[in-house]
Write a protein that binds this DNA or RNA. Structure first.
Lengths: 191, 191
DNA sequence: GCGATAGTGAACCGATTGGTTCAAAATTCA
DNA sequence: TGAATTTTGAACCAATCGGTTCACTATCGC
């Protein structure tokens, strides 16, 4: 009865990421993690130090993948189109269950602010970096620096709103329309 | 040394509400609640049944007060002005610490979706009711029904975004500007 | 083959979780 | 005043929390 060989680290992290994403930090127990990752307690602590450390790692990974998602949409396309795509792709045409998990950074901020300010601050920093990205793309689209900053702040508000709303399992229709309206505003302002 | 007489129920509930608002459901322990409310365990369970029941009660109260806040702003004023006030009052000119607590309904949705769907659903319902309120005020301002519905959805997105951002302790400047921009859009669309 | 290393499951740990019990004390009403 | 009724704190409960220890086993380099 050959015992399962050494576990696949990246796959285990992915499983953990999904759990943290869906249920948040506190509601994800060690037992949940071990079951999902398919490893034992001792292996867990040997490989990831801590529940908290693993969470930080997952949050890191999530942020990295999110910016990667923007990069992917930016290939050879007008910056505004890519930006709009980033928002619409999140829930339109994606019948994936992820649609209802929101954004791990937004979730972490709301769950952990005032509880674990270090973790919440990390998540907030990643969101700030994402917002800077919005800003740069708006400048690429021809917006003046001050205008790009203002519009990026508006986009981040919309982004946070979308992630919260998606957790509410609201019909996608209610999300798509405000996005197109916002981008109509942006395009007319930039042009 | 006269023992303190029977505790003030409404004051105790208020203290609990603040705790739940700031730290969320899970991170608020019974010990936290008892200390803040100034009562003993047995009194707690006799009066409020449950931690969960008390939370529901507080969430209820929060939603009720939020709509009350809109009503307060609506007295003898153009509906759009009142609506805009509701958004700007949340963080401008209010040096209160509440500014950084966000919205208990938004917090509850993100924290509890997928963990306690009953509680999360309740919070979501209250948000939906608030959105209906937005919609009615937009209609009062002269918007066509379909347009009012769309703009209300946009406003709810902005609202959720603001509450998340306020938890991040972002400078109020970054919130106020997108709001005025959004209302500029709304006013031009409704007129 | 062998020794070193890495990975593993199970037992165990103290602390904390939300919740119950109960006798004593404070209040109410006659 | 004295009996009935609330209200109270403290002790207690099982369950779960995150984390550690350790002997055993698979793997890898030689």
């Amino acid at each position: 009865m050959a015992r399962p060989i050494q576990f696949d680290r990246t796959k285990a992290v992915d499983r953990a990421l999904v759990l943290f994403w869906r249920k948040g930090y506190q509601a994800t127990s060690l037992a949940d993690l071990l079951a999902a990752m398919g490893i034992g307690r001792s292996s867990f602590y040997a490989a990831f130090t801590d529940k908290r450390s693993l969470f930080i790692h997952c949050l890191d990974l999530f942020a990295q993948r999110t910016t990667g998602l923007i990069d992917g949409a930016s290939a050879n396309r007008p910056p505004l189109d890519a930006l709009q795509d980033f928002f619409e792709r999140s829930f339109v045409g994606t019948p994936s269950p992820r649609d209802h998990w929101g954004c791990m950074m937004v979730n972490s901020v709301t769950e952990l602010a005032g509880v674990d300010d270090d973790l919440a601050g990390r998540a907030s920093q990643y969101l700030a970096a994402l917002q800077k990205r919005f800003q740069m793309m708006l400048e690429d689209a021809g917006a003046a620096p001050a205008q790009a900053e203002e519009l990026a702040a508006l986009l981040m508000l919309i982004n946070e709103g979308i992630r919260v709303s998606s957790r509410r399992r609201l019909p996608g229709e209610q999300l798509r329309q405000p996005i197109t309206a916002t981008f109509r505003l942006i395009r007319s302002a930039v042009a």
